[in-house]
Structure formats: structure tokens, C-alpha cells
Design a protein around this nucleic acid. Structure first.
Lengths: 225, 225
DNA sequence: GTCGATTGTCACCAAACTGTCACCAAACGT
DNA sequence: ACGTTTGGTGACAGTTTGGTGACAATCGAC
């Protein structure tokens, strides 16, 4: 069962950490900020719902998405599951792809939310906007799944743009997010040059941009999707 | 069915807006920023999944939670539903309380996200007045869903007018809101020219205004609706 | 220390934007 | 009816801004 779920999730693009019992799950959850947690109710050592409740009780995990899977499909069980703090409750038998899609829907929310959190947390996540993807864990960026030779500052700028895809980001904000400085004398020039270099690597024409568009007098924004 | 769902949601603390067909749903969704949207797949006029897809396509509604309800419970239907962008998919018959709890789980996420935002952002995000819409996050303005090529100052002026739709705004106020200046020597002329340019882009005839009307001796106002 | 990659700065250009002005017409006060 | 005030229109030039490319200082790995 775990193999099937893992495979379906990996197909959907997830990087999966798998454990075989409730205790290990609880240990991992305490250590790692997962995007989504999939729990079976019937697990050795610690019950899935109990893990769910404990996770919800952790302030720093309150916002992690939890999906509970079970063989018990009665209305009461489902209600118990949701009351335990699960974001979604899926009864066996289910189609693996359905689980993967539900997990994606949850992850979509987590990511969006993560963007609002402090940089430290964001650093440990991967963000996607259309054909663009950055992984700040590995400091890698991809365009159409082809790796991009981007530098540290560029990738941080990209991440900032992707996490606010569609929204205009002031160059002050970019300066703060990518360089970690509040202000700078030649800050505007800096950002200008950095965007220029990044655009070259993205093969992005400023006059007909596919990705980064300038917002005159403000800064830049990434085209949504 | 709608009554039952409404009752369950209201019991859970929701304030419910109910419509009876897909078209009304789509109209409401465009106008109102709901926390959660519950859609039946089988709806008159516009199919629930189509409403779901359209909602997802709206940038300013991308983060609204959508829960789809249906009688079709096959794996394929569920997958189609989730692929349409639903956050949750519930098959009839279901326990009303389950739906309410699932809706709560989704709303919890929406709220958390909203709560993280600063008040200013919430105020300055998307504003609508009839066919006019400005989104100060993205620095975009729309007339009948067609994008307008407006400049930064113009969009700020528009936003100020829209947020006070129907009320007269003094040119001093416009100067302060759009230019960020308390006073100016040729301020009156400035605003005059800016309004003139904006009106051209809105295709608005001052003698027969659809949008911006002059309030003699004071400033301007946007026609309501 | 050397070499290459990265990065901060600068100068220049083109395009966009904006402030100002002059002029006209309509509205207003007397 | 007349002069005055206010708003609308259009043009113009100065300014600002973003894009581009080059260069030197800096950083980092060997």
C-alpha cells in the first residue's frame, strides 16, 4: 500500500519520505517541515489520528497539510478524522491518482502559504511557476526541466519572484530578499543589472517578456502561470 | 439539498451565500472574495466543474478554496474534479457534517493565509467598480476584463477613485494618494492633465462621462456601480 | 597565488512618462 | 451681457526609467 501511494505521489512530482509506523512518522514530523503528510489510520505503535492530533498541536506544524487514509469509511470515522485536524480524509479503496491529486491540491496551498512565512522556512522549499522551478534547498533552478546555470543571487531573486508570481515586487523588496540588505546606494542599478543577467539566462526578451516584466517606477513581476 | 448544506455550514459558523445555478455562481464569484466555494457538478446553465475551472483561471481568485459536490462517485469523475482545480471533492450521499468540517478545514487555510497579510495589502488588492477593476498588487487595471495600458500614477489615481466610487475626491486628495505629495504649485494642472490622459485610455467622454465626472471647484468622482 | 566566475558600478541610449503651458469652451457670478 | 473662473485639450520638452554592455573589484576553488 505504501509503495503504491509513494509511486503515485512521485509521479505527481513529490519527493516522498516513507516510514512504516506511527512512531517513526511522529519523529520525522517533528524534525522535518513537510509540505504534505499522508497518514494511514491503522498504523503500528501510534495510531494515525493520534499522530494527526499531535502534529496539529505543534505550533510550527499547525499549517502543514495532513491527508488521512483509512479503510473505515463510515460517516462517524470521517468526522472523527476531520475533527482530529486532518485537511482531507480518503477512504480505501481509492484510486492512487486521486490521492496524488488531492495531495497536490493541499501542497498548492502550503506553498502559497509558505511564501508568506519567514525566509528561513522558505529556504527549505521548492517553488514552481509554470515552466520555471527553483529549489532553494539545492540552489538549483530549472526551465522546462532543463537546469539553469544561475548564481546564488539570481536564484534568490527568482525565488522571490516566483513566490509572488503575478504580483509586482519593488526593487527594494528584491534587494532585501535576495541580497539581505535594507537599502543600498546603487540598489536600483544592482537590481537592474541582476535582472538583465537573469533574463539572458532565461532567454527572456524584455520587449516581449515570457517571464519577467518591468513595472515602471516600482520593480518587476513574474508573469503568472 | 442546498438547504441542507447551507444549514450544516451555518451551524459550523459560516455565513452562506446561496445561488441556484452556475451562471449566478460565476457572477457572484467574480464579485465577491469568498473563503470557501461549494459547487454541485450538476447545475443549470453552467456546469460546476466549468465554474471551478473559470474560478481557478481568475488570478485574484486562485487562492479561494473550492469544494465540489456530486452524485458521480467514480474514480474518473473524482480525478476530473480535482484536475479542474477543486481543493476537495465529495460524493453524494455524504453526511452534511462531513461537508461542513471539510469546508472548515479549507477555510482554516484560507483564513490563515489572509491573517498573515498586512492590512494595507488587503485594502490595496483588487478593487472593482462595475466594468473597472484595478489590482494594485499586480499594478494592472482592467476595463471589461481587457487590460489597460495605464501608468503607475494613473493606476494609483484610478484606485483612489474606485475605492471612493460615487464620492467626490478633491484634487488635493488625489495628489496625495497618487503622487504622495501634500501640496504642489501646479497641482491642479497636474491632476487635470492626468485625468485627461486617463480618460483617453478609458475612452471616456467628459461631456458624456461613463466613469469620471468632474465636480466643479472640488475635484472628480467615479460614477457608482 | 592564480584563474575563472561572480558582482558592484558606471556610462550611454532609447523609450516612456510627466510637468507645464497656452488656448478654448463651458459654467458661474454679478 | 460681461468678465472671471474652472475644466478640457493638445503639444512640447525635460526628466526619469529601464535596457545594455563594459570594466574592475571581489570572491572562491584549486
Amino acid at each position: 500500500m505504501a509503495s503504491i501511494i509513494s509511486f503515485a505521489l512521485e509521479t505527481e512530482g513529490f519527493i516522498v519520505t516513507r516510514v512504516t509506523n506511527g512512531f517513526d512518522a511522529w519523529e520525522s514530523i517533528q524534525l522535518i517541515q513537510f509540505d504534505v503528510i499522508v497518514l494511514d489510520v491503522m498504523m503500528p505503535r501510534i495510531d494515525g489520528l493520534e499522530v494527526c492530533r499531535r502534529t496539529r498541536a505543534l505550533p510550527q506544524r499547525a499549517s502543514t497539510s495532513i491527508l488521512v487514509v483509512t479503510a473505515k469509511a463510515g460517516p462517524d470515522e470521517i468526522i472523527t478524522g476531520l475533527e482530529a485536524g486532518a485537511d482531507d480524509y480518503l477512504a480505501k479503496p481509492f484510486h492512487p491518482r486521486e490521492l496524488a491529486l488531492r495531495a497536490s491540491a493541499l501542497a498548492r496551498r502550503s506553498h502559497r502559504k509558505l511564501a508568506d512565512e519567514v525566509p528561513e522556512i522558505v529556504v527549505t522549499s521548492s517553488s514552481v511557476s509554470g515552466a520555471l522551478r527553483v529549489d532553494l534547498d539545492r540552489f538549483e533552478a530549472f526551465l522546462d526541466d532543463r537546469p539553469l546555470r544561475v548564481t546564488t543571487n539570481e536564484i534568490r531573486m527568482l525565488a522571490c519572484l516566483i513566490q509572488n508570481a503575478g504580483k509586482a515586487i519593488s526593487w527594494e523588496q528584491l534587494l532585501k530578499d535576495a541580497w539581505g540588505v535594507e537599502s543600498w546606494e546603487g540598489g536600483r542599478e544592482m537590481v537592474k543589472a541582476a535582472v538583465y543577467r537573469l533574463r539572458q539566462k532565461l532567454d527572456d526578451d524584455p520587449h516581449e517578456p515570457r517571464f519577467i516584466v518591468a513595472v515602471r517606477g516600482v520593480g518587476y513581476k513574474l508573469l503568472p502561470l
